[in-house]
């Protein structure tokens, strides 16, 4: 699956080279959404064709909920602990406004 990382790196380099073309990136967001829709549709087809999934959908749903709960709870707790290590003055309003003008 190394090809995934190579394709992403290639995309990032091309994106970096084309970074001045603002219109391109506005269109790109729509292309990405369209490809995601297509991908989920195609993924849905392979799921619909898979009898194991179709026959056990209620069990699959329960597992997804349990795993989501674990992952989200773990993330929130660890992130909170990490945030506690920062001094209270981190990420003040000023930092944000400077970034916002940079981006705008």
């Amino acid at each position: 699956m190394i090809e995934i990382l190579v394709i992403m790196a290639a995309g990032m380099m091309i994106g970096y080279l084309l970074r001045q073309k603002k219109a391109l990136f506005a269109a790109l967001d729509r292309v990405v959404m369209a490809v995601i829709f297509l991908l989920l549709f195609v993924l849905g087809i392979s799921v619909g064709l898979n009898e194991t999934v179709v026959g056990n959908i209620h069990m699959i749903g329960v597992k997804a909920v349990v795993l989501t709960f674990g992952a989200v709870a773990g993330s929130i707790l660890c992130c909170r602990f990490a945030w506690g290590l920062f001094p209270a003055t981190s990420f003040q309003e000023k930092t944000f406004e400077r970034e916002a003008t940079d981006e705008g």
Partner: peptide
């Protein structure tokens, strides 16, 4: 998808 997402991050 990966390719287009990569372009977005690179840009």
């Amino acid at each position: 998808l990966i390719f287009f997402v990569g372009i977005g991050i690179g840009g």
